[in-house]
Design a protein around this nucleic acid. Sequence first.
DNA 1: TTTT
DNA 2: TTTT
Lengths: 161, 161, 161, 161
Amino acid sequence: MLNRVILIGRLTRDPELRYTPAGVAVTQFTLAVDRPFSSNQGQREADFIPVVTWRQLAETCANYLRKGRLAAVEGRIQVRNYDNNEGRRVYVTEVIADNVRFLESPNSGNREDGSGMGGSSGGGSSSGGGNRGSYGGGREQQDPFQDDGRPIDISDDDLPF
Amino acid sequence: MLNRVILIGRLTRDPELRYTPAGVAVTQFTLAVDRPFSSNQGQREADFIPVVTWRQLAETCANYLRKGRLAAVEGRIQVRNYDNNEGRRVYVTEVIADNVRFLESPNSGNREDGSGMGGSSGGGSSSGGGNRGSYGGGREQQDPFQDDGRPIDISDDDLPF
Amino acid sequence: MLNRVILIGRLTRDPELRYTPAGVAVTQFTLAVDRPFSSNQGQREADFIPVVTWRQLAETCANYLRKGRLAAVEGRIQVRNYDNNEGRRVYVTEVIADNVRFLESPNSGNREDGSGMGGSSGGGSSSGGGNRGSYGGGREQQDPFQDDGRPIDISDDDLPF
Amino acid sequence: MLNRVILIGRLTRDPELRYTPAGVAVTQFTLAVDRPFSSNQGQREADFIPVVTWRQLAETCANYLRKGRLAAVEGRIQVRNYDNNEGRRVYVTEVIADNVRFLESPNSGNREDGSGMGGSSGGGSSSGGGNRGSYGGGREQQDPFQDDGRPIDISDDDLPF
DNA sequence: TTTT
DNA sequence: TTTT
């Protein structure tokens, strides 16, 4: 079996870093990836694809990625499910990333930022300022994947790899 | 932007061929893709990933793929949404395939079956017999993506590419 | 069968646009892709991977890519061979791209430049002279991209896709 | 940077297992991957793509793969070079695989044979093995996989990953 | 022959 | 030098 995904897109929001009860870092963000064609209403649309990173990569992503930034993500598709408060089973599809490249950095001019893998995470970074604008430069699209009341259940059982 | 997925897995059921009002073929199936590691309960798990094909490729898949068969799929992740009968917005993530390889065929011994792309679709649907076996050879897992009451809304607006 | 490559790297030189006798555009460039680890001498190394694009994509690449620019390339590996002037068979491996993303542009600040696919090529077009070399097609072929004295002939038989 | 290749094809010969002086296993084989179109002489052609695997994966490939078998390979493109006996620099392009799937097995009927990885179970960690080491890393290297009179030396410096 |  |  084989399950491989490669995406290039922009973050719809700042990444969210959390920790499992056992202290393992998890970061979630959503990538807006423009579709390669226009809709028949002539608009360019995007797919909003949830991405999850774990451990060191999670820390690095939380430190270096921000809303609007361009990133390349390598990983696999994972489908998990939970029962919501109406007793319905809900399916959640995410890309579990094992490699993230930062394709832009605000302060280093126009250069690639380095790797999400080997990168020493350095300090808190977050470099302030950042954060303008709608994700993709202009269109006011909405990130559908956030605090919509879904129970958040990160457990240490969810560790991939 | 870039959005590329490659999967190898087994069909959880026979593919479902439908037509849009304008007569465009669409085929949906789910691929069970084993995870590359075991859960911490020591079980091997799988992701059940919905795949959609259109037009000629849809016809070919409907003709040649069957429950339990191994296939390779190339495509892109698409996230669409609709409002369910409780007025909640539901997000559906699918792989829109533009290339499918049939990695097994029941009657040609142990050989690859050919391409889903250029393949002359040949005749009649091959419906016969089909349907033995649980998808992954043994485990009785459940395909979560079927007739669970979700409205099916294939429209001609959904044509990719 | 399946053959898919995705690269992100920097151009080692300006791209070279040429035309087949029938006027089909071909652009060649080399991508320097850093390896994901350091050598045991502690140096970071790169692979230098030749990329070939055809037709509209070739024009767009010639117009928008330059030495040092970051690009994402999607395509397939192609291996062709020719007999050199010593009568030895030489094997040439290239990535035939069907999609190129420009991940930096010098004049548009810090934004992605757009697609290599749908891009209107705009200005320069650079039609110039060039023109020989059979590329990719039959057997016993010449490498059109080397001006080191080997015979060159690009023919229109060499069009992929 | 990013460098990802996925291939499905057939082995042109039995794989060749060797060991470095330090006893690290290396296996080389060539995958014949049919092109997705016919030549203008109407023939279907193939690319013959050299694949290299290391360590445990090398042993597994040597044990389970044979000439003619269908396999899926995931890895990265590596370009190394050496100076041949005429003093010319020769460039060798190979896919360094980190995942191989056996898509056919002769004795288990028509089923997929399993993974080339041998996933460690347990919850966390896994990811096995050290890192670093560039295979074909330094400069001026020999191609260890050709017995045509060129000097052979696989060194332990060549370990990838 | 290589990019940052 | 190539597989089916």
